[in-house]
Design a protein around this nucleic acid. Sequence first.
RNA 1: UGGGGUGUGGUGUAAUUGGCAACACGACAGUUUCUGGUUCUGUUAUUAGGGGUUCGAUUCCCUUCACCCCAACCA
Length: 568
Amino acid sequence: MSALDDRPAAANFVRDLVIADCEQGTFGGRVQTRFPPEPNGYLHIGHAKAITVDFDLAAEFGGVCNLRFDDTNPDTEDASYVKAIVDDIGWLGYEVATPLYASDYFLQLVDWAVLLIRQGKAYVDEQDGETISEQRGGYGNPGTESPHRDRPIEENLDLFARMRAGELDEGAAVLRARIDMQHENMQMRDPVMYRIRARHHHRTGDGWKIYPTYDWAHGQSDAIEGITHSLCTLEFDGHRPLYDWYLDQLADAGVLPYEQPRQSEFARLELTHTVTSKRKLLQLISDGVVDGWDDPRMPTLRGLRRRGYPAESIRDFCRFIGVSRTNSRNEIELLESFVRTRLNAVAQRRMAVLRPLEVVIDNWPTDDSGVPLVEQVELINNPENADDGTRTAPFSGRFWIEQDDFKAEPPPKYYRLTPGREVRLRGAFFVTCVGLDTDADGNVERVHVTYDPETRGGNASDGRKVKSTMHWVSADHAVDVQVALYERLFSAEIPGEATGDVFDDLNPNSRELLEDCKAEPALGDATLGSVVQFERLGYFAHDLHAPLLFHRTVGLRDEWANIQKRKG
RNA sequence: UGGGGUGUGGUGUAAUUGGCAACACGACAGUUUCUGGUUCUGUUAUUAGGGGUUCGAUUCCCUUCACCCCAACCA
């Protein structure tokens, strides 16, 4: 654990609740949480918040957090997602001893359902879904009771057994809790506990013909595992009375193995310029807007990872934004600031030129046969970390600079290379612009400079200063690389706010692939997946597979860009 | 239409439960610097509105308003 991880957990209402429970001995001093994803999609930044809250809270109070797959709907779930989710959680930095599955409790759940039937608290309803829905009533109007609501217990037992045995067709019947069709909370109007679904399940195979609903499975799974604090998002707030009702019945029957767990809800994470809805992420892929779940523009953990976001920075962010019940949306800039903070400390510096402009040193020395001499200059790997040491880079009479770093006619406050001005080439020499070559259209093709041999290493012996230090890459030694530049996937802060359709706010320039970039030779020794800083440009991640492809993780804070933006 | 939830700067969270509204991001102005990065400093708020109780209210009471969630055999 690094220094940033040591900061005390921020105050929040859930943590206060846990502290109060510990003081009062509510759960015998135990704290146990769970993260319950449904294995039907990939984890994204929103899940990262839930994971961080669930795992950190348990860890802080000496408890454990279970990873439990909520695999109660065989229609959409798949084993491949299970694997990816376990993998992503591990990458985020959390240890999962053994993944658990709601499907492991199917037998227990059925036993408990039978218990409720015997107590007259559940019944089989043979009406179709549409009828049941109509009878549920609406906001303000009470529901009406099913004609099957008062059928004899033996009949319910028999019908439920037949549902389970596969003797009834899909949709022919459901098991319902017998609560209150007049209840002002819709969730309490005799909710469905089981539906008939003769499907293959990724873990239980073809044995089950009925599957429990979320509400019936979730709280009971919590109880079986000994969960104390069942944390979920705000939209489940209305389900809490039902969560408690089921557990109350089982507690009254004396069958719960642990203290009765409690559910608390907090606001989900929303980010500006980002969508996290599973449906919309899927559509981005199927429409070909992005390349897949791990496209560096995706808010998925796999995407962020490929983009170069350190797992620690995601955790820092999730810890910092807090836990509350206020619907809110965090600025993506905050996430990026945590990424920069982490990367600034650990990323080694390298030089690369994205849009090359050739510079020739007119007074550079040659050997007897007219070949330019080559100097090796020493460069610091990371000014933030002396232990990273130094490296050398070749320097000769021709090099590349960024097109942006030269202006024939400089705008106000521009202090990079311009005719007549002297600048420093990082770690090398001072050079002064003495001329330029242009093509037929007047575009700058090449810049001519002279260098001062007395400035070797980057300092003038007479102590004179220059306004600007620029990065460069020796033209005769450059490594050709490709760089993918990324901007926000959605240009609007709140995608879809204006028209109702998030896809109207897609940024057409979310990716720009630069094929003709020049990098210093040290970049040739790629460590796949690692992140470096290209000096003055930003942080760039080596692709996981292609050694000479770099993804821009995030740019450096750029005051010059702000100055230009302000001028419009 | 009924029920539930939430309102603190541009943004997100705090405030020892009635005592100078704090932290961070962003923005702006400086500082430092061989990265227009980093560092450091400063500026950026009548706590949704209106009443009340009190010496004193983000906190307690009344009231108005705004936003979010709920009528899947999804989770």
